[in-house]
Design a protein around this nucleic acid. Structure first.
Length: 546
RNA sequence: GCGCCCGUAGCUCAGUUGGAUUAGAGCAGCGGCCUUCUAAGCCGCAGGCCGGGGGUUCGAUUCCUCCCGGGCGCGCCA
């Protein structure tokens, strides 16, 4: 049994004999200080209200009832807390269980086959992906991986907005570059896309097409648009490949229109009296429900806005049978999210159906200081180029190592650093060292044939037991990271575990230690398992050698 | 101006549903340590009115309020 469950069950049993309802949630925490034992409960504070006794008194009585349990070396009341010190054998049992679970360790079945759709990146095809999109790509991919750990079926989806005004500007920008390549003085529109990537494409078009599109007319629009989208998609796929993100479904905005979903959704909103007309446009009554403004759904020229299509899209997600939808989006979409959420609520969708993982932006800290990127201005670092520079593992890890809601300063120098000062290598190197020890153990014939039957009693050192207790936390970290969209918790956890492993490795000899050797190898196997499981979730490799 | 997010060591950041009279980590700084399974390392020291003022509580970095300082949004863009 896992340690928290051990304490929770024991306390629950003691309280049951006391007439406390079993439904009571018993808080169990890891202690911050060794003198407080390994785990503690503050349940006495909770009970003092209903039982009318002061917390210290309840804690003392509770501790007395638990003192003779075999798993605990000591159960002590301290103030209102009850502190538990585990017997080493109970800790070793945890390691044995982890090794028995193997690759299943950390997984749960809370999803029970339900399906979650994670929509992320969904960048307009107006240029290659940048380091800005990388954060979203990594967060979305890891969010899906985390849910998969909890037993959900995951669909990774990219919403492709290949229509609208931005595409128009892109096409016109490309056309200008194409004309320039033919020697004409055609300026890129001021609100167009100025990046160098269009220059090279314009030159290619000039070579292939010659003077085929001399004017910015309807024919040119159609041709340039198709050409631009195709070329942008090629770049985006290259960038996604570079960081190893694969999407299961690509949904095009055009498809939603063709299926009539937008009109149908609008009609539903109108039926519910949520839409009104003003200045020839259709508006959503949002302020009536506490939002800051009413957004236009249908423009006066009859075309739907992004918000309108987004509501229709989410209704479609519901129809497709997803139990949960997770949208990963940048902080600039807060207002949009509110509008969509409201629209869905008005359409009768359940409250928790859509969850947003909102993230702040990335700034790049390099030799030239901190810079703000802009795709339109052509000032950005392309994702593929970044990966070529620092590697996929570092690129991905750095993007999720901070809380999504916090701004992320990407330290280029640290990312390029291949020493263990780079947290990615610090964690990976722990894995590598263990692999190395096992290779050596194979060579010397000390590797146990069956780790599960190894006598673990030699694991009595505080550092060894602490490491096992840390391994015991892994499933909780995975669960918290998933529920709170907080993959950084996993990074911190892995760095912390590595931070326990490296000093131990440096000071404790593993091979040639008699019975202790097999026990320590079993411990290492547990650490290796958790490190590789954690890195797997993050989409980072766990190398055997570096 | 209004709304949302953020403000913790010199820097980048953690801090679990409020908890334990000593708030953590990694860099950077200072000082130690290599006959060993990779020193791509390990150990130690120093470093903080947790942006500021009020309030709630037995107890606040955590909750409420005001102020200061940053980010984002406030389009018939996406």
């Amino acid at each position: 049994m896992r340690l928290e469950a051990l304490v929770r069950t024991s306390v629950g049993e003691a309280l049951a004999g006391w007439g406390v309802p079993s439904a009571l949630e018993i808080p169990v925490e890891r202690t911050a200080r060794p003198e407080h034992g390994d785990l503690s409960t503050r349940v006495a504070f909770v009970l003092s209200r209903t039982r009318g006794a002061p917390p210290p008194q309840i804690a003392t009585e509770l501790a007395a009832r638990l003192a003779d349990r075999s798993a605990f070396h000591a159960v002590e009341a301290a103030g209102g807390f009850v502190n538990f010190t585990l017997r080493p054998s109970a800790v070793r049992d945890v390691l044995r269980q982890i090794l028995a679970d193997g690759p299943r360790y950390g997984r749960r079945d809370e999803g029970q086959g339900k399906t979650v759709q994670v929509e992320f990146v969904s960048s307009n095809p107006t240029g290659p992906l940048t380091i800005g999109h990388l954060r979203q790509a990594a967060l979305g991919d890891v969010a899906a991986a985390l849910y998969a750990q909890l037993g959900w079926r995951c669909v990774r989806e990219y919403y492709l907005n290949d229509e609208g005004r931005q595409m128009e500007r892109l096409a016109q920008s490309l056309w200008a570059r194409y004309r320039q390549a033919l020697g004409h003085d055609e300026p890129v529109p001021e609100d167009g896309y100025h990046g160098a990537y269009l220059v090279a494409m314009g030159e290619e078009l000039a070579q292939v097409w010659g003077d085929r599109c001399p004017r910015w007319d309807e024919a040119a629009r159609t041709a340039l648009r198709a050409e631009a989208v195709a070329r942008m998609m090629t770049m985006i796929h290259e960038d996604l490949d570079a960081i190893g993100v694969r999407f299961d479904v690509w949904t095009k905005e055009g498809d939603l229109h063709r299926q009539g979903l937008v009109q149908a959704t609008l009609a539903q909103l109108q039926q519910r009296g949520a839409v009104y007309e003003k200045d020839g446009a259709q508006w959503l009554s949002s302020t009536r429900h506490g939002l800051s403004r009413d957004p236009v759904l249908i423009r006066s020229d009859g075309t739907p806005t992004y918000t309108m299509v987004d509501i229709a899209y989410h209704l479609e997600k519901k129809r497709r049978g997803f139990n949960l939808v997770v949208n990963v989006q940048g902080a600039d979409h807060v207002d949009e999210q509110r509008q969509v959420q409201l629209g869905l609520k008005l359409l009768g969708l359940p409250e928790g159906f859509v969850r947003y993982c909102l993230h702040q932006f990335v700034t790049l800290k390099g030799e030239e200081g901190i810079q703000r990127m802009s795709t339109r201005a052509g000032r950005f670092l392309r994702l593929k180029d970044l990966v070529a520079e620092v590697g996929r593992d570092v690129a991905r890890y750095f993007m999720v190592m901070r809380k999504p809601g916090s701004h992320l300063v990407f330290d280029y120098d640290l990312a390029r650093d291949t020493s263990m000062e780079n947290p990615v290598y610090y964690v990976q190197y722990a894995h590598t060292r263990i692999a190395s020890v096992f290779r050596e153990a194979e060579r010397t014939g000390e590797a146990p044939s069956d780790l599960l039957s190894v006598d673990l009693s030699a694991l009595a050192d505080r550092r060894e037991l602490d490491m096992i207790k840390e391994l015991d936390r892994f499933p909780d970290v995975v669960q918290a990271a998933a529920h709170e969209f907080a993959p950084h918790l996993l990074c911190e956890y892995l760095e912390g575990l590595s931070g326990m492993f490296h000093p131990y490795y440096a000071h404790v000899r593993i091979l040639g230690q008699g019975p202790a050797t097999a026990a320590r190898l079993a411990l290492f196997a547990g650490v290796r398992l958790v490190l590789s499981r954690g890195l797997e979730i993050l989409g980072v490799s766990a190398p055997e050698a570096m």
